[in-house]
C-alpha cells in the first residue's frame, strides 16, 4: 500500500512556468512580469514553487508566508486570476502549464507579492472587534449556551488574510469602504449575547462607506479560504440595521453566573 501512496513522490512530473509580477519600490520602474521555469513534484503548492524560485532562480522575489498550512493567512495572492492562499493551492490541481501570480489587488504593494494590509487591520479595528460591556470589572461569568454560540461561531473562523477585500468589487474603487471582513466581524460581535456595544458600532457600520456599500456580489464568500461566508454576515447585519430603524434593536442580555471574587485570575 505504501508504494502506491508514495508513487511518483519526489519525481519531477512536469515543468510549469511561473509568471510572477515584480515590483520594487526602490527602483523607479513600473511593475513587470518575469517568468521562471519550475519543476513540479507531487504535492507541491504554489508557495513551494515561489520558494523554489527564491532558492534556485531569483533570490529577490518577495512573498509573505508563515505557517504553510492555511492558518496564518499571510500568503494570499491572485493565482490565475482568483484570490487563493498560495500554501493551499496545489500546482498539479491547477492543471495549467502557466501559473500567473499577482499580489492581492486593492492594497498598496510593499514589494513584489507583498501587500500592505494596514487598511484591513484599520477597518477591522474600527468596528471594535471585542466585547463591550458597561461594567469595567465583571464580577461573574456570562453564561452562553451552545445554541447562542452557533449564531456567530462561523464568523470567528476569519484568519484576516484579506482576500475578500481584494475580490470585492466595491473595494476596487472605494478605499474608504469597510470591506466584507470588518462588516462580518461587526455582525459577529453584535450577535454575541455577551456584547452590549450595538450603539457604539452603529455609527461606523451605518455610515456612508459602511454596510450599505455592499451590493452582494458574493465574491468575498467565493474566495474565502475558511468558508466564513462574509457576504452572509453582511446581509444579516443589514437586516438587523433595517429592522433597527423601525424597532430598536434589543441587546441580548447574557445571564450572569454566580458571583466570584476574581474572574480573571485562578480562583
Amino acid at each position: 500500500m505504501q508504494e502506491i501512496a508514495l508513487k511518483g513522490f519526489g519525481e519531477v512530473l512536469k515543468t510549469v512556468t511561473f509568471r510572477v509580477r515584480r515590483y520594487d519600490p526602490e527602483k523607479r520602474e513600473l511593475a513587470k512580469y518575469m517568468e521562471y521555469k519550475v519543476p513540479v513534484q507531487m504535492g507541491m503548492t504554489v508557495l513551494d514553487g515561489i520558494l523554489y524560485i527564491k532558492e534556485h532562480l531569483d533570490h529577490s522575489v518577495s512573498a509573505r508566508y508563515s505557517c504553510r498550512m492555511g492558518i496564518c493567512g499571510s500568503c494570499g495572492m491572485i493565482i490565475n486570476g482568483k484570490e487563493q492562499l498560495a500554501c493551499q493551492t496545489q500546482i498539479l490541481e491547477l492543471n495549467k502549464d502557466l501559473i500567473k501570480v499577482d499580489p492581492m489587488g486593492n492594497y498598496p504593494i510593499v514589494k513584489d507579492l507583498v501587500p500592505d494590509l494596514s487598511k484591513l487591520f484599520r477597518n477591522h479595528g474600527s468596528v471594535k472587534p471585542y466585547i463591550i460591556r458597561e461594567e469595567e470589572e465583571p464580577k461573574s461569568e456570562f453564561i452562553q449556551t451552545p445554541e447562542q454560540r452557533e449564531e456567530y461561531a462561523m464568523f470567528t473562523d476569519c484568519i484576516l488574510c484579506g482576500m475578500c477585500l481584494s475580490a470585492c468589487p466595491t473595494n476596487a474603487t472605494d478605499e474608504l469602504y469597510l470591506g466584507p471582513q470588518s462588516l462580518a466581524q461587526g455582525y459577529r460581535y453584535i450577535t454575541d449575547n455577551r456584547d452590549m456595544g450595538f450603539n457604539e458600532r452603529l455609527n461606523v457600520l451605518d455610515s456612508k462607506h459602511g454596510v450599505w456599500r455592499c451590493h452582494f456580489s458574493g465574491a468575498c464568500s467565493e474566495v474565502c479560504p475558511k468558508g466564513v461566508d462574509p457576504a452572509l454576515g453582511v446581509q444579516l447585519l443589514r437586516q438587523l440595521l433595517t429592522s433597527n430603524s423601525f424597532v430598536k434593536y434589543k441587546q441580548k442580555e447574557a445571564t450572569k453566573g454566580p458571583e466570584r471574587k476574581s474572574v480573571s485570575g485562578v480562583s
Binding site: D206, K208, G210, W212, L241, T242, N244
Partner: peptide, 9 residues
C-alpha cells in the same frame, strides 16, 4: 439622513 434610511427608500 442616515444611510440606512436612504437605502430603505
Amino acid at each position: 439622513m442616515r444611510e440606512s434610511r436612504i437605502m430603505f427608500l
